[in-house]
């Protein structure tokens, strides 16, 4: 008993850390979301629900929907690109598997902002790609690539695809290969076997990859800020602007709370599925 209590003290520093640096700011944001802005543009604590009304008014609703739409598109593109990549590395990578994985992971140690700037250099009207197109005479004028939804989604895909590939790789690698053979043995063509056996057998990885790409994509502001324009404004940009340019902290706080609520619903759904998946394995 006493020994147990003794060891519990070792939890204290971590608990304190989480309380001070995680829970406290969250509570402050939560409190601020019910406040208002005074005449000098400073956030003042109070109690009004108006900020939450504003989140869903007609000016901002399209921004929310657009964010979700971009994140869904990002998720699907990541899945479409990531699945074959993960599959080939896991199944046919042989002893090069870890080298290939490292080659995929290492670029992600470079700051996301810096990597996105590289895309600007590539896609801008005066960028590498457009210069090449004009020089080769494929087009008279630069092709509009930056400031389009596809540039923003492309940036998101590039930014988060590794979060799709790694869980997919894990579940494909773990999959019992004889299950796939059983599918073929039981008269499944290669395509049928993929749909009816391989995908269900790797669904835990698919789900994890989708959630891990979707969640950060919804809240992302870097890609839209660097690669997009006014038409690709996402909720992450909106929140950032409330805390900087527009200086409306209470509204920014309300937006943040709504975002967190939305994302936690997904997170909880995912964690429950994951827990259930584990129970089945054991």
């Amino acid at each position: 008993m006493n020994a147990h209590r003794f060891w519990n003290w070792f939890l204290a520093p971590g608990t304190l850390w989480i309380l001070v640096l995680f829970a406290a700011p969250l509570l402050l944001i939560f409190a601020l979301s019910f406040g208002h802005v005074d005449d000098f543009g400073r956030g003042v604590y109070g109690f009004k629900l108006g900020n939450y009304d504003d989140v869903f008014n007609s000016t901002y609703l399209p921004v929310l929907l657009r964010s979700v739409g971009y994140a869904l598109a990002t998720m699907l593109i990541c899945l479409a690109i990531g699945y074959p990549v993960a599959y080939y590395i896991a199944r046919f990578g042989g002893r090069w598997r870890y080298v290939l994985l490292a080659a995929l992971v290492i670029p992600f140690f470079v700051n996301y902002l810096v990597r996105t700037y590289a895309w600007v250099a590539l896609l801008a009207d005066e960028g590498l790609v457009n210069n090449a197109i004009v020089d080769l005479g494929l087009s008279d004028a630069p092709v509009q690539m930056i400031n389009t939804p596809w540039a923003v989604i492309g940036g998101l895909v590039y930014g988060y695809i590794i979060f799709m590939i790694l869980p997919l790789y894990g579940s494909i690698e773990r999959m019992d290969q004889s299950v796939v053979e059983a599918g073929k043995d039981l008269y499944g063509s290669p395509l049928q076997t993929f749909i009816h056996v391989t995908i269900p057998a790797t669904q835990a990885g698919i789900l994890a990859g989708c959630v891990l790409v979707f969640l950060p994509s919804v809240g992302d502001f870097v890609s839209a800020q660097l690669l997009g324009g006014p038409d690709t404004y996402m909720v992450g940009n909106l929140i950032q602007d409330q805390f900087f340019a527009a200086s409306n902290w209470p509204f920014g706080a309300a937006l943040t709370m709504i975002m967190m609520l939305f994302l936690s619903v997904w997170m909880v759904l995912y964690l429950r599925r994951a827990a259930k998946g584990e129970a089945e394995v054991l």
């Binding site: 019992d176 004889s178 299950v179 053979e181 059983a182 599918g183 056996v197 269900p200 057998a201 089945e280």
Partner: peptide, 8 residues
């Protein structure tokens, strides 16, 4: 199959 290879 030796491992049965059932579809879980």
């Amino acid at each position: 199959f030796q491992s049965y290879a059932l579809f879980e």
